[in-house]
Design a protein around this nucleic acid. Structure first.
Length: 349
RNA sequence: GGCGGCAUAGCCAAGUGGUAAGGCAGCGGUCUGCAAAACCGCUAUUCACCAGUUCGAAUCUGGUUGCCGCCU
Protein backbone atom coordinates (compact mmCIF):
# COMPACT_ATOMS: atom_id res chain seq x y z
CA UNK A 1 0.00 0.00 0.00
CA UNK A 2 1.23 3.43 -0.85
CA UNK A 3 0.39 6.61 0.92
CA UNK A 4 0.91 9.98 -0.53
CA UNK A 5 1.47 12.22 2.40
CA UNK A 6 1.72 15.88 2.81
CA UNK A 7 4.99 16.45 4.62
CA UNK A 8 3.63 19.52 6.31
CA UNK A 9 1.67 17.26 8.60
CA UNK A 10 4.76 15.20 9.30
CA UNK A 11 7.21 17.62 10.79
CA UNK A 12 9.64 14.80 11.50
CA UNK A 13 10.33 14.51 7.81
CA UNK A 14 10.36 18.13 7.09
CA UNK A 15 14.10 18.52 7.18
CA UNK A 16 14.62 15.77 4.67
CA UNK A 17 11.92 16.99 2.42
CA UNK A 18 13.05 20.54 2.41
CA UNK A 19 16.18 19.29 0.82
CA UNK A 20 14.85 16.58 -1.47
CA UNK A 21 11.33 17.79 -2.01
CA UNK A 22 10.27 14.20 -2.29
CA UNK A 23 11.16 11.20 -0.23
CA UNK A 24 10.33 7.64 0.66
CA UNK A 25 9.67 6.41 4.14
CA UNK A 26 8.94 2.95 5.44
CA UNK A 27 6.22 2.30 7.94
CA UNK A 28 5.94 -1.35 8.78
CA UNK A 29 5.32 -3.09 5.50
CA UNK A 30 4.06 0.02 3.86
CA UNK A 31 6.00 2.34 1.66
CA UNK A 32 5.11 5.92 2.20
CA UNK A 33 5.88 8.32 -0.57
CA UNK A 34 6.14 11.83 0.54
CA UNK A 35 5.69 14.74 -1.69
CA UNK A 36 6.13 18.33 -0.82
CA UNK A 37 3.35 20.76 -1.53
CA UNK A 38 5.88 22.98 -3.13
CA UNK A 39 7.53 20.82 -5.80
CA UNK A 40 10.97 21.46 -7.17
CA UNK A 41 10.98 24.29 -9.64
CA UNK A 42 11.05 23.37 -13.28
CA UNK A 43 13.43 24.79 -15.83
CA UNK A 44 14.15 24.33 -19.48
CA UNK A 45 17.85 24.08 -20.26
CA UNK A 46 19.09 25.11 -23.67
CA UNK A 47 22.70 24.24 -24.36
CA UNK A 48 25.02 23.58 -27.26
CA UNK A 49 28.20 24.82 -28.86
CA UNK A 50 28.98 28.44 -29.48
CA UNK A 51 27.55 29.96 -32.63
CA UNK A 52 24.81 27.42 -33.14
CA UNK A 53 22.02 29.87 -32.41
CA UNK A 54 21.10 29.29 -28.79
CA UNK A 55 20.01 32.86 -28.21
CA UNK A 56 17.46 33.16 -30.98
CA UNK A 57 16.19 29.67 -30.28
CA UNK A 58 15.76 30.50 -26.61
CA UNK A 59 14.14 33.85 -27.23
CA UNK A 60 11.60 32.32 -29.54
CA UNK A 61 10.77 29.42 -27.26
CA UNK A 62 10.70 31.53 -24.11
CA UNK A 63 8.46 34.01 -25.82
CA UNK A 64 5.89 31.45 -26.78
CA UNK A 65 5.84 30.08 -23.24
CA UNK A 66 5.99 33.53 -21.68
CA UNK A 67 9.09 32.52 -19.78
CA UNK A 68 12.24 34.37 -18.88
CA UNK A 69 15.82 33.62 -19.78
CA UNK A 70 18.63 32.96 -17.37
CA UNK A 71 21.96 33.24 -19.12
CA UNK A 72 24.46 30.47 -18.42
CA UNK A 73 27.44 32.01 -20.07
CA UNK A 74 30.68 32.73 -18.27
CA UNK A 75 31.45 35.76 -20.42
CA UNK A 76 28.09 37.37 -21.04
CA UNK A 77 27.98 38.14 -17.34
CA UNK A 78 30.47 40.95 -17.97
CA UNK A 79 29.29 44.43 -18.74
CA UNK A 80 30.83 46.26 -21.68
CA UNK A 81 31.78 43.02 -23.38
CA UNK A 82 29.03 42.80 -25.93
CA UNK A 83 30.30 42.07 -29.41
CA UNK A 84 32.83 39.38 -28.60
CA UNK A 85 30.49 37.50 -26.31
CA UNK A 86 27.64 37.58 -28.83
CA UNK A 87 25.42 38.95 -26.13
CA UNK A 88 21.67 39.02 -26.79
CA UNK A 89 20.76 42.30 -28.44
CA UNK A 90 18.62 44.96 -26.76
CA UNK A 91 15.87 43.95 -29.16
CA UNK A 92 16.07 40.33 -28.05
CA UNK A 93 16.18 41.42 -24.46
CA UNK A 94 13.06 43.50 -24.85
CA UNK A 95 11.18 40.48 -26.16
CA UNK A 96 12.15 38.25 -23.27
CA UNK A 97 13.60 39.29 -19.98
CA UNK A 98 17.18 38.11 -19.45
CA UNK A 99 18.86 37.42 -16.14
CA UNK A 100 22.51 36.77 -15.33
CA UNK A 101 23.72 38.91 -18.21
CA UNK A 102 25.65 42.15 -17.59
CA UNK A 103 25.93 41.59 -13.90
CA UNK A 104 29.59 42.29 -13.14
CA UNK A 105 32.39 44.47 -14.44
CA UNK A 106 35.23 42.79 -16.30
CA UNK A 107 37.58 43.13 -13.35
CA UNK A 108 35.26 41.74 -10.72
CA UNK A 109 35.82 38.26 -9.41
CA UNK A 110 33.29 35.72 -10.51
CA UNK A 111 33.15 31.95 -10.66
CA UNK A 112 30.87 28.96 -10.89
CA UNK A 113 29.96 29.22 -7.23
CA UNK A 114 28.93 32.85 -7.62
CA UNK A 115 26.88 31.82 -10.59
CA UNK A 116 25.10 29.07 -8.71
CA UNK A 117 24.41 31.31 -5.74
CA UNK A 118 23.07 34.17 -7.77
CA UNK A 119 21.01 32.23 -10.28
CA UNK A 120 19.18 29.81 -7.99
CA UNK A 121 17.16 32.57 -6.26
CA UNK A 122 16.11 33.77 -9.69
CA UNK A 123 14.74 30.33 -10.51
CA UNK A 124 12.87 30.30 -7.21
CA UNK A 125 11.48 33.77 -7.76
CA UNK A 126 10.26 32.82 -11.22
CA UNK A 127 8.65 29.72 -9.82
CA UNK A 128 6.81 31.85 -7.27
CA UNK A 129 5.50 33.99 -10.11
CA UNK A 130 4.72 30.86 -12.12
CA UNK A 131 7.07 31.89 -14.86
CA UNK A 132 9.09 29.21 -16.62
CA UNK A 133 12.86 29.77 -16.55
CA UNK A 134 14.90 29.05 -19.67
CA UNK A 135 18.50 28.50 -18.71
CA UNK A 136 20.48 29.09 -21.86
CA UNK A 137 24.18 29.09 -22.43
CA UNK A 138 27.29 27.21 -23.37
CA UNK A 139 29.07 27.07 -20.04
CA UNK A 140 28.48 23.50 -19.00
CA UNK A 141 29.89 23.90 -15.53
CA UNK A 142 27.62 26.85 -14.79
CA UNK A 143 24.54 24.94 -15.85
CA UNK A 144 25.59 21.98 -13.78
CA UNK A 145 26.26 24.07 -10.71
CA UNK A 146 22.91 25.79 -11.00
CA UNK A 147 21.07 22.49 -11.16
CA UNK A 148 23.02 20.64 -8.49
CA UNK A 149 25.02 23.22 -6.64
CA UNK A 150 28.69 22.71 -5.93
CA UNK A 151 30.07 20.89 -2.94
CA UNK A 152 29.95 23.01 0.12
CA UNK A 153 33.50 23.92 1.06
CA UNK A 154 34.70 26.96 2.88
CA UNK A 155 35.56 29.85 0.64
CA UNK A 156 39.26 29.99 -0.07
CA UNK A 157 41.02 33.00 1.24
CA UNK A 158 43.17 34.70 -1.29
CA UNK A 159 46.31 34.41 0.75
CA UNK A 160 46.29 30.64 0.43
CA UNK A 161 45.77 30.72 -3.30
CA UNK A 162 48.48 33.28 -3.84
CA UNK A 163 50.90 31.40 -1.68
CA UNK A 164 50.28 28.16 -3.56
CA UNK A 165 50.74 29.89 -6.87
CA UNK A 166 54.06 31.21 -5.71
CA UNK A 167 55.16 27.75 -4.69
CA UNK A 168 54.14 26.49 -8.11
CA UNK A 169 56.21 29.15 -9.81
CA UNK A 170 59.27 28.81 -7.64
CA UNK A 171 59.44 25.10 -7.12
CA UNK A 172 57.39 23.84 -10.02
CA UNK A 173 54.08 22.07 -10.24
CA UNK A 174 55.71 18.76 -9.42
CA UNK A 175 56.30 19.91 -5.86
CA UNK A 176 52.64 20.68 -5.44
CA UNK A 177 51.72 17.34 -6.87
CA UNK A 178 53.95 15.57 -4.38
CA UNK A 179 52.34 17.51 -1.58
CA UNK A 180 48.91 16.49 -2.87
CA UNK A 181 49.96 12.85 -2.91
CA UNK A 182 50.68 13.21 0.80
CA UNK A 183 47.45 14.88 1.88
CA UNK A 184 44.96 13.55 -0.67
CA UNK A 185 46.18 10.48 -2.52
CA UNK A 186 42.71 9.82 -3.92
CA UNK A 187 42.70 13.06 -5.84
CA UNK A 188 46.35 12.80 -6.76
CA UNK A 189 45.61 9.53 -8.47
CA UNK A 190 42.87 11.13 -10.53
CA UNK A 191 44.82 14.17 -11.65
CA UNK A 192 47.58 14.42 -14.20
CA UNK A 193 50.87 15.83 -12.95
CA UNK A 194 50.60 18.70 -15.40
CA UNK A 195 47.14 19.66 -14.30
CA UNK A 196 48.42 22.37 -11.98
CA UNK A 197 45.07 24.05 -12.07
CA UNK A 198 43.24 21.29 -10.28
CA UNK A 199 46.22 20.32 -8.18
CA UNK A 200 46.17 23.86 -6.86
CA UNK A 201 42.45 23.78 -6.21
CA UNK A 202 42.72 20.46 -4.36
CA UNK A 203 45.47 21.83 -2.18
CA UNK A 204 43.71 25.05 -1.39
CA UNK A 205 40.60 23.18 -0.34
CA UNK A 206 42.72 21.03 1.90
CA UNK A 207 44.55 23.95 3.41
CA UNK A 208 41.49 26.06 4.10
CA UNK A 209 39.22 23.31 5.36
CA UNK A 210 41.55 20.61 6.56
CA UNK A 211 39.71 18.02 4.52
CA UNK A 212 40.73 16.55 1.18
CA UNK A 213 38.68 17.72 -1.76
CA UNK A 214 37.87 14.11 -2.56
CA UNK A 215 35.89 13.91 0.70
CA UNK A 216 33.70 16.77 -0.40
CA UNK A 217 33.32 15.33 -3.85
CA UNK A 218 32.36 11.91 -2.61
CA UNK A 219 29.65 13.43 -0.49
CA UNK A 220 28.30 15.68 -3.21
CA UNK A 221 28.50 13.82 -6.52
CA UNK A 222 25.89 15.99 -8.21
CA UNK A 223 23.19 13.69 -6.91
CA UNK A 224 20.56 16.05 -5.59
CA UNK A 225 19.15 18.30 -8.20
CA UNK A 226 17.60 21.52 -7.03
CA UNK A 227 15.11 21.64 -9.88
CA UNK A 228 13.61 19.37 -12.47
CA UNK A 229 14.82 20.09 -15.94
CA UNK A 230 14.21 19.41 -19.57
CA UNK A 231 17.45 19.79 -21.46
CA UNK A 232 17.55 20.69 -25.11
CA UNK A 233 20.89 20.47 -26.86
CA UNK A 234 21.17 22.21 -30.19
CA UNK A 235 22.88 20.15 -32.83
CA UNK A 236 24.18 20.75 -36.33
CA UNK A 237 26.57 19.06 -38.74
CA UNK A 238 30.12 19.83 -37.77
CA UNK A 239 31.09 21.40 -41.12
CA UNK A 240 28.04 23.57 -41.14
CA UNK A 241 28.66 24.74 -37.60
CA UNK A 242 32.27 25.57 -38.39
CA UNK A 243 31.15 27.62 -41.38
CA UNK A 244 28.75 29.49 -39.17
CA UNK A 245 31.49 30.14 -36.65
CA UNK A 246 33.80 31.54 -39.31
CA UNK A 247 31.01 33.74 -40.54
CA UNK A 248 30.17 34.94 -37.08
CA UNK A 249 33.76 35.89 -36.37
CA UNK A 250 33.78 37.99 -39.53
CA UNK A 251 30.55 39.59 -38.43
CA UNK A 252 32.00 40.42 -35.02
CA UNK A 253 34.96 42.07 -36.66
CA UNK A 254 32.67 44.16 -38.85
CA UNK A 255 30.60 45.05 -35.84
CA UNK A 256 33.68 46.57 -34.26
CA UNK A 257 35.20 43.99 -31.97
CA UNK A 258 38.60 45.61 -32.20
CA UNK A 259 37.20 48.94 -31.05
CA UNK A 260 35.35 47.30 -28.22
CA UNK A 261 38.57 45.79 -26.94
CA UNK A 262 40.45 49.04 -27.41
CA UNK A 263 37.79 50.84 -25.39
CA UNK A 264 37.89 48.25 -22.63
CA UNK A 265 41.59 48.66 -22.32
CA UNK A 266 41.33 52.43 -22.30
CA UNK A 267 38.86 52.07 -19.47
CA UNK A 268 41.61 50.41 -17.54
CA UNK A 269 40.82 46.74 -17.98
CA UNK A 270 44.14 45.03 -18.49
CA UNK A 271 44.90 42.04 -20.61
CA UNK A 272 45.70 40.05 -17.52
CA UNK A 273 42.06 39.87 -16.51
CA UNK A 274 40.27 36.60 -16.94
CA UNK A 275 37.58 38.34 -18.90
CA UNK A 276 40.11 39.84 -21.27
CA UNK A 277 41.76 36.47 -21.77
CA UNK A 278 38.65 35.03 -23.32
CA UNK A 279 38.25 34.15 -26.96
CA UNK A 280 38.12 37.16 -29.20
CA UNK A 281 39.36 39.56 -26.54
CA UNK A 282 42.77 38.02 -26.15
CA UNK A 283 43.09 37.78 -29.91
CA UNK A 284 42.39 41.48 -30.38
CA UNK A 285 44.95 42.23 -27.69
CA UNK A 286 47.49 40.05 -29.46
CA UNK A 287 46.96 42.17 -32.53
CA UNK A 288 46.98 45.50 -30.71
CA UNK A 289 50.24 44.61 -29.00
CA UNK A 290 51.80 43.45 -32.25
CA UNK A 291 52.14 39.82 -31.28
CA UNK A 292 50.10 38.75 -34.30
CA UNK A 293 49.45 40.33 -37.68
CA UNK A 294 45.87 40.77 -38.78
CA UNK A 295 45.40 37.65 -40.93
CA UNK A 296 46.95 35.54 -38.22
CA UNK A 297 44.70 37.18 -35.63
CA UNK A 298 41.61 36.25 -37.57
CA UNK A 299 42.85 32.78 -38.29
CA UNK A 300 43.63 31.94 -34.69
CA UNK A 301 40.41 33.53 -33.49
CA UNK A 302 38.40 31.31 -35.78
CA UNK A 303 40.43 28.28 -34.91
CA UNK A 304 40.14 28.82 -31.17
CA UNK A 305 36.41 29.38 -31.46
CA UNK A 306 36.06 26.08 -33.31
CA UNK A 307 38.13 24.30 -30.69
CA UNK A 308 35.97 25.80 -28.00
CA UNK A 309 32.84 24.59 -29.76
CA UNK A 310 34.38 21.15 -29.90
CA UNK A 311 35.01 21.13 -26.16
CA UNK A 312 31.45 22.22 -25.49
CA UNK A 313 30.10 19.41 -27.65
CA UNK A 314 32.23 16.94 -25.71
CA UNK A 315 30.82 18.28 -22.47
CA UNK A 316 27.17 18.21 -23.48
CA UNK A 317 27.43 14.91 -25.34
CA UNK A 318 28.40 13.29 -22.08
CA UNK A 319 25.11 14.38 -20.54
CA UNK A 320 22.63 11.58 -21.22
CA UNK A 321 19.68 13.77 -20.29
CA UNK A 322 20.15 16.11 -23.22
CA UNK A 323 17.51 15.89 -25.93
CA UNK A 324 19.25 16.79 -29.17
CA UNK A 325 17.29 18.94 -31.58
CA UNK A 326 17.86 21.10 -34.62
CA UNK A 327 18.53 24.70 -33.76
CA UNK A 328 15.07 25.64 -34.90
CA UNK A 329 12.05 25.79 -32.62
CA UNK A 330 10.02 22.91 -34.00
CA UNK A 331 6.69 21.52 -32.95
CA UNK A 332 8.62 18.65 -31.43
CA UNK A 333 10.38 21.07 -29.16
CA UNK A 334 7.17 22.81 -28.20
CA UNK A 335 5.41 19.54 -27.54
CA UNK A 336 8.20 18.25 -25.38
CA UNK A 337 8.11 21.47 -23.42
CA UNK A 338 4.37 21.27 -22.97
CA UNK A 339 4.61 17.67 -21.85
CA UNK A 340 7.28 18.59 -19.39
CA UNK A 341 5.09 21.30 -17.93
CA UNK A 342 1.97 19.23 -17.62
CA UNK A 343 3.81 16.33 -16.09
CA UNK A 344 2.89 16.08 -12.44
CA UNK A 345 5.80 15.62 -10.17
CA UNK A 346 4.90 12.01 -9.73
CA UNK A 347 6.94 9.68 -7.66
CA UNK A 348 6.96 6.26 -9.18
CA UNK A 349 7.43 3.16 -7.18
C1' G B 1 66.08 19.64 -76.44
C1' G B 2 70.46 19.95 -72.70
C1' C B 3 72.22 20.57 -67.63
C1' G B 4 71.20 20.95 -62.45
C1' G B 5 68.08 20.65 -58.10
C1' C B 6 63.88 18.75 -55.45
C1' A B 7 60.06 14.82 -54.57
C1' U B 8 58.70 12.32 -46.68
C1' A B 9 51.02 12.76 -43.41
C1' G B 10 46.12 17.95 -45.24
C1' C B 11 50.44 21.79 -44.80
C1' C B 12 55.65 22.97 -43.17
C1' A B 13 59.62 19.83 -42.21
C1' A B 14 64.03 16.62 -39.71
C1' G B 15 66.26 12.37 -41.09
C1' U B 16 72.57 10.29 -46.04
C1' G B 17 72.40 2.41 -44.69
C1' G B 18 69.81 -0.13 -39.01
C1' U B 19 63.91 -0.15 -38.97
C1' A B 20 60.01 7.43 -39.99
C1' A B 21 61.90 13.73 -35.04
C1' G B 22 59.15 18.08 -34.48
C1' G B 23 55.63 22.02 -35.63
C1' C B 24 50.90 23.55 -37.70
C1' A B 25 46.09 21.88 -38.81
C1' G B 26 42.73 17.86 -37.46
C1' C B 27 40.33 14.17 -34.29
C1' G B 28 38.92 11.93 -29.42
C1' G B 29 38.48 12.78 -24.23
C1' U B 30 38.63 14.93 -19.01
C1' C B 31 36.19 18.56 -16.17
C1' U B 32 32.82 19.83 -8.47
C1' G B 33 34.59 27.91 -6.41
C1' C B 34 39.62 30.77 -12.64
C1' A B 35 35.58 26.70 -17.22
C1' A B 36 35.51 31.25 -23.74
C1' A B 37 39.88 28.42 -18.52
C1' A B 38 43.05 24.28 -17.62
C1' C B 39 44.61 19.40 -18.76
C1' C B 40 45.25 14.49 -21.30
C1' G B 41 45.41 11.15 -25.51
C1' C B 42 45.45 9.92 -30.93
C1' U B 43 47.09 10.96 -36.08
C1' A B 44 52.66 7.98 -42.31
C1' U B 45 53.37 -0.51 -41.51
C1' U B 46 55.68 3.90 -44.70
C1' C B 47 59.11 8.16 -47.47
C1' A B 48 56.45 9.91 -56.07
C1' C B 49 56.75 5.15 -59.05
C1' C B 50 59.52 0.72 -60.99
C1' A B 51 63.75 -2.26 -60.83
C1' G B 52 68.53 -3.24 -58.62
C1' U B 53 72.67 -3.43 -54.70
C1' U B 54 72.54 -5.07 -49.47
C1' C B 55 71.44 -9.36 -43.91
C1' G B 56 68.98 -4.53 -43.85
C1' A B 57 67.19 1.31 -48.11
C1' A B 58 63.40 7.26 -47.01
C1' U B 59 68.65 7.10 -47.22
C1' C B 60 73.15 3.90 -52.42
C1' U B 61 72.57 2.71 -58.12
C1' G B 62 69.70 2.78 -62.77
C1' G B 63 65.21 4.04 -65.06
C1' U B 64 60.21 6.43 -65.16
C1' U B 65 56.98 10.48 -63.77
C1' G B 66 56.11 15.37 -61.74
C1' C B 67 57.68 20.17 -60.10
C1' C B 68 61.40 24.18 -59.92
C1' G B 69 65.64 26.66 -61.83
C1' C B 70 69.43 27.68 -65.55
C1' C B 71 71.02 27.14 -70.66
C1' U B 72 69.89 26.56 -75.97
Amino acid sequence: MVWILDPDSYPLYTIILNKFQTGVARHGNETILMQSKQPKPKAIIICGPTGIGKTSFAVELAKSFQGEIIGADSMQIYRHMDIGTAKPTPAERSVVRHHMVDIVDPDEPFDAESYATLSLPIVMALQARQVLPFVVGGTGLYIKSLIYGLFDAKPVDKEVRIRLKQVAEKEGAATLFERLEQVDPVTARKLHINDRYRILRALEVYETSGLPISDYQQRHRFQESRMTTLKFGLHMERDQLYDRIDGRVDAMIHAGLLDEVRRLRESGYSGELKSMQSIGYRHMLDFLDGRLDWPETIRTLKRDTRRYAKRQMTWFNADREVVWVDPVVSSKVENRTREFLSDQLSVKK
